[in-house]
């Protein structure tokens, strides 16, 4: 009996296009849902987590002196051979790099240089916007590396952004727990 009723119900559904109506109702509901689009780079952009391996930077010690001792371990361990270090000795007899160049066009951002560094002088930060029209511009020198922003304490959030910001600044996010990418995804 119930099976016959089911079949009758299916037929009635077919006659009145219940399945098509269901689909239309679903898409209509979605039309008024919030888009999941992140409007990069017009309105907002993502600040990666602190563990993200972005652009390299060189650190200074408390006296403002460059931490790097030009041991060239980073250049040795680099799997793509993109770091070039030339050392010099200052008047106090400390080794420092006269030249410290990273060819970011060849770099694969493995972070081995950061692991190998005995002086904790080099690290990979969160900056990821450094594309260029010329591969020559991608060879970054010592002073530029020193000027790069370091690691932010927080990360994984979305911050307001505007197109064509040339600023090399470190942005901190308020969301320490990271950004909820699923905020507007409907789950049924």
């Amino acid at each position: 009996m119930s099976r016959a009723q089911d079949r009758a119900g299916t037929w009635i559904g077919w006659v009145f296009f219940a399945d098509l109506a269901n689909g239309l109702a679903l898409t209509f509901g979605y039309m008024f849902s919030k888009p999941v689009t992140m409007q990069y780079p017009d309105k907002e952009k993502w600040l990666p987590y602190a563990r993200y391996r972005g652009h390299h930077f060189l650190k200074r010690d408390d006296e403002g002196e460059i931490k790097c001792v030009a041991c060239e371990l980073c250049a040795r361990i680099c799997p793509c051979d993109c770091i070039e270090v030339v050392p010099y000795e200052d008047e106090k007899g400390n080794r420092h790099p006269a030249k410290f160049e990273i060819d970011t066009a060849r770099c694969l951002f493995c972070g081995l240089c950061e692991d190998a560094c005995p002086a904790d002088a080099i690290a990979l930060g969160q900056q990821y916007e450094f594309s260029s029209f010329s591969s020559a511009d991608l060879v970054i020198g010592r002073d530029d590396l020193l000027a790069k922003p370091g690691k932010a304490a927080t990360g994984g959030g979305v911050v307001a952004a505007r197109l064509n910001t040339k600023k090399d600044v470190l942005v901190e996010t308020e969301e320490t727990q990271g950004y909820n990418w699923w905020r507007n995804i409907r789950r049924t």
């Binding site: 979605y30 039309m31 409007q39």
Partner: peptide, 14 residues
């Protein structure tokens, strides 16, 4: 625009 919003996108914005 309608296509975008049905698919949870924004459609042309720029």
């Amino acid at each position: 625009k309608i296509a975008g919003h049905i698919q949870q996108r924004m459609g042309p914005m720029r």
